[in-house]
Design a protein around this nucleic acid. Structure first.
Lengths: 194, 194
DNA sequence: CCATTTTTGAACCAATTGTTCCATAATCAT
DNA sequence: ATGATTATGGAACAATTGGTTCAAAAATGG
């Protein structure tokens, strides 16, 4: 079996805490002290378990993205068709007033914060956004096959519009728009997309 | 006349340099060293002329917003009507591949970075975004009077949709979308808005 | 020459940054 | 129990953070 002193923390739980912290403060503005407090482990444990700040951030980003995509796939599967999935997705994004919703999306936030850097975190952030867009590409194609979306439309740009819309919606919620206003905004999006 | 040694730097030029720096790195990730280098000032000159980092950032934010709004107002005035202004605005935003365009908008970036903080910089960032939306509100009403936009639509949510769209477009450009793709995205926006 | 103001550069501050290292602790295998 | 192995706690690290203060030099107007 395993040799040596056993872990006294749950790496997954610690990672979740790290995600929350990066989510709230962004990459640069999150200090190691913040992470240590949130993850509830000692300095050396963190470095031994996760390497360093950058490596931890990359892990957090990938974990967040995987979970997000898994969640989307699940919801798509549960939807009667692709169009209603899109509708539901936007509507619920505009409806949730949770504290998490007001944080925006970690992926979009990171892509915005890290901008055009050529660092690994920046590349990973952009790449993660691209992966979400790729998922939407698939959804758009399905909706086109059923006829909910004009088949003549380029699915790639439509997918980008959807990513774009999710990003904008998050900013809107962050700016403190009301549910009602957000719902109306969803109306504009759906009208543009159909 | 003025007594004493005259200023050896142009405060406006220095402020522009500061804006560029905050634009590129964000508020927190910009250090005083970065600012000193970019503004080509000595430490004490900066503190004497601008106070401190936060004050300088607030000044930069307000200056950027004022210039942005002045620019928008000018373009609106030069447009034959409100609708063509909106069209032009989105189209040109999707067309410019300049380095500045890839930085996004300082206002949106700051609002995203500072999130829900209750600090003065965060408040100012949100407030600046709101001012842009207020400008769009006026534009929408004009377009409704001429009939380019359905008069039954709520101008406030339409204005928010426009702000939202500009924000999303910036993220799209930052992610490296092609001109062609961005232009198609503009098509979705205009279709949703009309 | 004097008063006024800016500039320069250094020094300093306390706090924070991310990181490294070492002794100690806790487990398993022998 | 002993030794190997791994985790932990905490000190210590050097570098940088934003911010302040100081003294001396420089450049203007009166």
């Amino acid at each position: 079996m395993t040799i040596g002193r056993p872990l006294q923390h749950q790496p997954e739980a610690a990672l979740k805490a790290a995600i929350q912290t990066f989510w709230r403060y962004g990459y640069y503005h999150t200090s190691m002290r913040d992470l240590l407090d949130a993850m509830a482990l000692s300095r050396s444990s963190l470095y031994q378990a996760f390497g360093n700040k950058e490596a931890l951030f990359l892990l957090a980003l990938n974990n967040y993205r995987d979970e997000l995509l898994a969640n989307l796939a699940e919801k798509l599967k549960a939807s009667p068709n692709a169009w209603s999935f899109i509708d539901q997705l936007l509507t619920s994004a505009a409806d949730t007033q949770s504290e998490q919703a007001s944080l925006g999306c970690l992926l979009f936030n990171s892509a915005t914060e890290l901008g055009g850097e050529d660092s690994l975190p920046a590349q990973t952030a952009r790449d993660s956004v691209a992966k979400v867009t790729a998922f939407f590409y698939d959804v758009i194609e399905r909706a086109q096959r059923v006829g909910s979306i004009d088949a003549s439309r380029d699915p790639k740009s439509a997918a980008q519009f959807l990513t774009f819309s999710m990003s904008g919606l998050r900013l809107l919620m962050k700016s403190g728009a009301s549910k009602q206003e957000a719902q109306q905004t969803v109306g504009y999006i759906l009208r543009g997309l159909a």
